[in-house]
Computed example of a mutant assay.
Amino acid sequence: MSSSFDKFQKRRLISSYFSVVLSVFLVLFLLGILGLFIINSKKLADDFKEKIAMTVFFKNEANDSILKAFGKELKIAPYARHTVYVTKEQAAKQHTDIIGEDFMTFLGENPLQNSYDIHLKADYVEKDSISKIEMRLRENPMIADIVYDKQLVNLVNDNIKKVSMWILIISGFLTFIAVLLINSSLRLSIHSNRFIIKTMQMVGATKAFIRRPFVMRSVRLGMLGALLAIIALLGVLYYLETKFPDLGILDNKPFIGFVLLGVFGAGVLITWLSTHFATQRFLNLRTDDLY
């Protein structure tokens, strides 16, 4: 009879450990996915911003030396990500390919102008920053016009701010839920040992002495759940990098390492705090309240 009860207790203990590890793993995995999404959403937003081109058109009086000097100036400009020089002949060919006929046959001349397509760095794709860059460039007397999609710039920045705000709200909500789920699993685990805790307290053991083995056990379970979550996250990263190499998921290794380290630290910290307060609750209960 005693042997059957011991086996039952052992199975219940293993089941309790498994539920703690599983809850820690699932919660930290979801938080890790959210963290990686936040990192890569910033990268994707920056990539999209840098695809918006500012086209600078030059007057026909601008000779090759002026155009080359402007190109050299752009190479050292802090706001330029990369630039593309488009001659009037190249522009005419592009227009011909788009409309399907050679417009110069009936115009008799090429009305297009030499130009530079400037792709700005993401930090400069802001309404005020682009306006300052445009004003500075227009000081060049050889520049005929500067064209870019102002509405698209404003739309992109407004939407990025909205998305970032919602991501922060969702992150905070999921973090709160994560703490509650892990805390509930650990409290259930401690609850099954409440009589042991009270017995140790009645024979004179200090609260710190009673808490220590429970805290250490929970921290080890938290570390195990965090390690499983990290392995799963690395698997997801490897899969995405293999299937979608153009996204450059693994390019931002320092931030990825920071997220993985944060997942591990969260597993340790949450389990430590939850177990500390759970054991403290049972230590403060009266014997009659244990039932």
Rank of each mutant, 00 (worst) to 15 (best):
G172N: 02
G172Y: 05
G172A: 13
G172I: 05
G172E: 04
G172F: 13
G172V: 03
F173V: 04
F173D: 05
F173Y: 06
L174Y: 09
L174P: 10
L174V: 10
L174N: 07
T175P: 12
F176E: 14
F176T: 11
F176N: 04
I177W: 03
I177S: 14
I177T: 15
I177A: 08
I177E: 00
I177V: 14
A178H: 09
A178R: 07
A178V: 02
A178D: 02
A178S: 15
V179E: 07
V179L: 11
V179C: 11
L180H: 01
L180N: 02
L180R: 00
L180S: 01
L181P: 10
L181F: 12
L181R: 13
I182E: 13
I182H: 09
I182P: 07
I182G: 09
N183T: 15
N183V: 13
N183L: 14
N183E: 02
N183K: 14
N183F: 13
S184A: 05
S184M: 09
S185D: 03
S185L: 08
S185A: 14
S185V: 06
L186F: 08
L186N: 05
L186Q: 05
R187Y: 06
L188H: 03
L188E: 08
L188W: 10
L188P: 07
L188T: 04
L188Y: 14
L188V: 06
S189C: 10
S189G: 15
S189Q: 13
S189Y: 11
S189L: 15
I190V: 12
I190C: 01
I190R: 01
H191N: 15
H191D: 12
H191A: 11
S192E: 11
S192D: 10
S192V: 13
S192Y: 10
N193T: 07
N193G: 10
N193E: 10
N193W: 04
R194Y: 01
R194P: 00
F195E: 03
F195M: 07
I196W: 06
I196R: 10
I196K: 11
I196N: 05
I196C: 14
I196Q: 15
I196A: 11
I197S: 00
I197H: 00
I197D: 03
I197K: 00
I197R: 03
K198P: 04
K198L: 12
K198C: 08
K198D: 14
T199H: 10
T199R: 09
T199Q: 14
T199M: 11
T199L: 13
M200H: 01
M200L: 08
M200Q: 13
Q201L: 12
Q201F: 11
Q201G: 12
Q201H: 09
Q201K: 12
M202K: 10
M202D: 06
M202F: 09
M202Y: 14
V203S: 00
V203R: 00
V203C: 01
V203W: 00
G204C: 00
G204M: 00
A205N: 05
A205I: 02
A205Y: 02
A205C: 05
A205V: 04
T206Q: 08
T206Y: 01
T206L: 04
T206P: 09
T206F: 05
K207M: 12
K207S: 07
K207L: 00
K207H: 05
K207D: 07
A208P: 02
A208S: 13
A208N: 06
